[in-house]
C-alpha cells in the first residue's frame, strides 16, 4: 500500500510570534521551524500501518522552499521511505491542496494523510480540498485509523462525540491525537535519512484565492487583579458584578 503523508514546516510551539514592520509577513528571524505537531500523528501512523502490513511505502510531501529540507530529512529519519518537495512558498490552502492533489494523482497513492491543521495558519482546509480535487472521501479530523485490506476504519471527531466511519482506498484523512504516539528519530534513522531519495518538483495549478492583507497581535491584557486566598469568595462577586460573566 502506498501512503502519502503531507507535512508542513511551522514555527516551534514556543515561538513568540512577530511580524515584519509592515505587518504583512511573519518574521522568521531567529525562529526555529519544526514538523507541524499534528502532522507527526499522520507520519507515525502511516509508518506503523506500513510495518503492520509488512510492505508498502511511505512518501512524505512538503510544499515549501529549500529551507524546509531539514524537516523533510527529519521525517525520513523517523521512518518515511522517500520524499517529494514541491518547490514553492505555501501561499494559501487552495494552492497547497492543488500541489498535493497533483502529486497524489501522479503517484497513485492509496492513503493520503496529513495533520488536522497547521499550527501557523490554522486553516483546517487542505484535507477537504484535496479530497474534493481527487473526488475521494475525506475523514477529518480522525482520532483513530486502522486498515484491513483496502478498507479503513476511522474515528472521526464530531463536537461532543465521535463517529465510526469506514471508507475504501483511496481516501484522505486529517489526523490528531490520540491516533498514535509520535515517534522521534533514532540514530540509525538519522544516518539512513541522508541517502533516502528527496525529489524536488515545480508547482502547477491555479493562483491562490486568498491573500493576507495584514497581521496583528491580540490586544494586551490590562494586568491581573489579585484576590487574597482567604477571601476567595470575593472573586465570585467580582465575576458577577464587575466582569458580568456569571
Amino acid at each position: 500500500m502506498k501512503f502519502l503523508v503531507c507535512i508542513s514546516n511551522v514555527p516551534d510551539t514556543t515561538t513568540k510570534i512577530a511580524f515584519t514592520p509592515d505587518n504583512k509577513e511573519f518574521n522568521k528571524a531567529g525562529v526555529q521551524f519544526v514538523i507541524n505537531p499534528w502532522d507527526e500523528y499522520a507520519l507515525t501512523r502511516a509508518i506503523e500501518l506500513k510495518e503492520a502490513q509488512g510492505g508498502g511505502t511511505v512518501t512524505v510531501l512538503n510544499v515549501g522552499e529549500a529551507d524546509t529540507e531539514p524537516n523533510i530529512r527529519k521525517a525520513l529519519a523517523i521512518g518515511a521511505d522517500d520524499a517529494i518537495r514541491v518547490n514553492a512558498a505555501p501561499k494559501d490552502a487552495f494552492f497547497v491542496a492543488q500541489q498535493i492533489a497533483n502529486v497524489a494523482k501522479e503517484g497513485a497513492y492509496d492513503v493520503i494523510l496529513m495533520g488536522k491543521e497547521s499550527i501557523d495558519y490554522n486553516g483546517f482546509q487542505v484535507h477537504g480540498m484535496v479530497g474534493e480535487l481527487l473526488g475521494i472521501p475525506t475523514v477529518a479530523p480522525a482520532m483513530k485509523l486502522d486498515m484491513s485490506g483496502n478498507t479503513a476504519t476511522l474515528e472521526r471527531e464530531i463536537e461532543g462525540g465521535k463517529e465510526i466511519v469506514q471508507v475504501n482506498t483511496p481516501f484522505v484523512a486529517s489526523c490528531q491525537q490520540p491516533m498514535c504516539e509520535p515517534r522521534i528519530p533514532n540514530m540509525r534513522g538519522i544516518m539512513t535519512a541522508r541517502t533516502k531519495p528527496l525529489k524536488v518538483v515545480e508547482p502547477t495549478g491555479d493562483a491562490p484565492r486568498t491573500a493576507v492583507a495584514e497581521y496583528a497581535l491580540p490586544p494586551k491584557k490590562q494586568g491581573v487583579k489579585l484576590i487574597p486566598a482567604e477571601n476567595a469568595g470575593e472573586l465570585i462577586k467580582l465575576l458577577r458584578n464587575e466582569a458580568k460573566v456569571i
Binding site: A93, G128, M129, L133, A140, I158, E159
Partner: peptide, 24 residues
C-alpha cells in the same frame, strides 16, 4: 461554523464551487 463539520464541508465546497475560503 468553524466546527469539525463546518470545516470539513466548507473545504470541499470551496473546490466544488470555486470559492475562496476563510476559516476561524
Amino acid at each position: 461554523a468553524n466546527s469539525n463539520i463546518g470545516a470539513s464541508v466548507g473545504s470541499r465546497l470551496s473546490v466544488r464551487l470555486q470559492a475562496s475560503l476563510a476559516t476561524n
